[in-house]
């Protein structure tokens, strides 16, 4: 099967994010990583590839020059090919979906496309479904269990507290991973060496026919949320502190 993983490069979860010009962030001091849920996507894609002999995994990422590092990570983990859709402009989710769909469509035999349930930078929670709709294939998000049997995909996704939906889909389809699906492997030394030799295929955004002017959702500005004032430590013997806390929650904070 020709398996795909669409991944995004995002700032490290520890990074402090500073605003540059009201609309973008200061990238100078940022360490970039593969978005955590996309690591689950890569892992599940590799497991499927190992299960079906003759399969390949292609990692795809749209973004500026720097995202090639994310693709190298995927290659080091075990992906066979990587495609970099070169774009230095900000596209909305619908346009990103159209561009990625153009790339994936060039492969007439694409199979399961793995993604993350959300990218932890824009937290848009939609690209997976938009991509599937663009390709007119089924999709399930927030997936915590994945099985491929008899040519069909069965997934379980968490819905409300602990309840799980079981979903059947034909291949090709999109599966968007959540935590709990698997434990991503680390790249081996050999994997890292091998990844260095694989050529990343570059597709300029212009080739996909997508451009910024078609954005429907426009970012107007970024702002820092108001900082909470420093809280209060309630001192004293345990029993007294507890009484005081409960009183404050009732009388001052009025939350109970």
């Amino acid at each position: 099967m020709n398996i795909y993983a669409c991944i995004k490069q995002v700032p490290d979860t520890e990074a402090s994010i500073l605003i540059k010009d009201g609309k973008s962030i200061n990238e100078a001091a940022i360490k970039w990583i593969v978005s955590p849920h996309d690591e689950y996507a890569i892992e599940e894609a590799l497991k499927l590839k190992e299960k079906i002999p003759g399969s390949t995994l292609t990692a795809v990422c749209l973004g500026p020059e720097r995202v090639q590092n994310a693709l190298r990570t995927a290659l080091a983990m075990g992906a066979d090919h990587a495609v970099h859709v070169e774009s230095s402009v900000a596209l909305d989710s619908q346009n990103t979906a159209r561009a990625l769909a153009q790339v994936i469509r060039t492969d007439k035999e694409f199979g399961v496309i793995f993604m993350g349930k959300q990218a932890i930078d824009d937290d848009a929670y939609q690209l997976h479904i938009l991509l599937a709709e663009e390709l007119a294939i089924p999709v399930a998000t927030n997936v915590m269990a994945f099985a491929f049997d008899g040519g069909k995909v069965r997934v379980e996704r968490e819905i409300d507290e602990g309840a799980r939906e079981v979903i059947d889909m034909a291949v090709p389809c999109v599966v968007a991973a959540a935590k709990g699906l698997n434990t991503p492997r680390y790249a081996s030394m050999m994997g890292i060496m091998k990844a260095k030799k694989i050529e990343i295929k570059k597709t300029p955004l212009a080739e996909t026919g997508v451009d910024e002017a078609q954005n429907k959702v426009r970012l107007l500005k970024l702002a820092s949320p108001a900082e909470k004032p420093q809280g209060r430590i309630i001192a004293g013997e345990a029993a007294d502190a507890v009484c005081e806390l409960v009183r404050l929650l009732r009388e001052e904070a009025k939350v109970i």
Binding site: I17, I25, I120, V217, L219, L220, K221, S224
Partner: peptide
């Protein structure tokens, strides 16, 4: 956005 480290205004 950025897991709540920033707020974004969209239109």
């Amino acid at each position: 956005v950025y897991s709540g480290k920033l707020l974004a205004e969209y239109q």
